[in-house]
Computed example of a mutant assay.
Amino acid sequence: MAALRKGKTEKEKEKDKDKELEKRTTLNARKGSLPEEPTTKDLMKELLKIQAEIKTIQNNQEAQTKASKSETEAMKKDMKDMKEELQSLQSLVKEEMTTVKNDVGKLKQDNIDLIKDNTTIKNHQEMVRKKVKSFEELIDKVQSQQEMMEIREKETQLRFRNVIEEEEDNIREVIVDMIAQLTKKKRTDAETEVDRVFRIQTTHSRKFKTPKDIIVQLTKKNTRDEILREHSKSPLQYKGNRIVILKQIPISVLERRRNYNFLTDELKRRNLRFKWEKREGLVTTWNENKYWLTSEAKARAFWDKYLKKKNENKQGYEEEGRGKCTPHHNDYADSVTKRLNLLEEEDNEKGRKRPREISPGNYTFQKETTKIDIDHLDKKSDNDDKKN
Rank of each mutant, 00 (worst) to 15 (best):
L272D: 11
L236I: 13
K220L: 09
E255C: 05
Q237D: 07
I249G: 02
R258Y: 13
Q237L: 07
N259H: 13
G240Q: 06
K221F: 04
N271M: 08
L236S: 13
N261C: 04
I251V: 13
R269D: 02
L272C: 14
E230A: 15
N271P: 00
L246Q: 12
H231K: 10
N261G: 02
Q217P: 00
V244E: 14
T264R: 04
R229C: 04
K268H: 11
L267C: 08
E255Y: 09
E266V: 04
R258P: 02
S234A: 12
K221M: 05
L267A: 08
L272Y: 14
E255T: 08
L254I: 10
P235G: 03
S232P: 01
E230T: 15
N271Y: 07
N222A: 04
L267V: 10
F262Q: 09
V253I: 15
L267W: 04
K221S: 01
L254V: 14
I251L: 08
S232N: 05
R269T: 01
T264F: 03
S252H: 08
S232Y: 04
K239G: 01
Q237W: 07
L228I: 15
L254C: 11
E255W: 04
H231Q: 15
K247H: 01
I249V: 15
V253M: 12
E266S: 01
K239D: 13
R257K: 07
R242Y: 00
L228Y: 09
T264D: 06
E266M: 05
E255L: 11
E255N: 09
D225Y: 02
K268R: 14
I245A: 06
N271F: 07
N241A: 10
I249R: 15
Y260Q: 05
I245G: 11
N259W: 08
E230V: 15
T264P: 11
K221A: 07
K220V: 00
T223F: 00
N259M: 15
V244Y: 14
I227Y: 02
R256L: 12
N271E: 07
I245W: 05
Q248H: 02
L267G: 07
I243T: 04
Y238Q: 06
D225A: 01
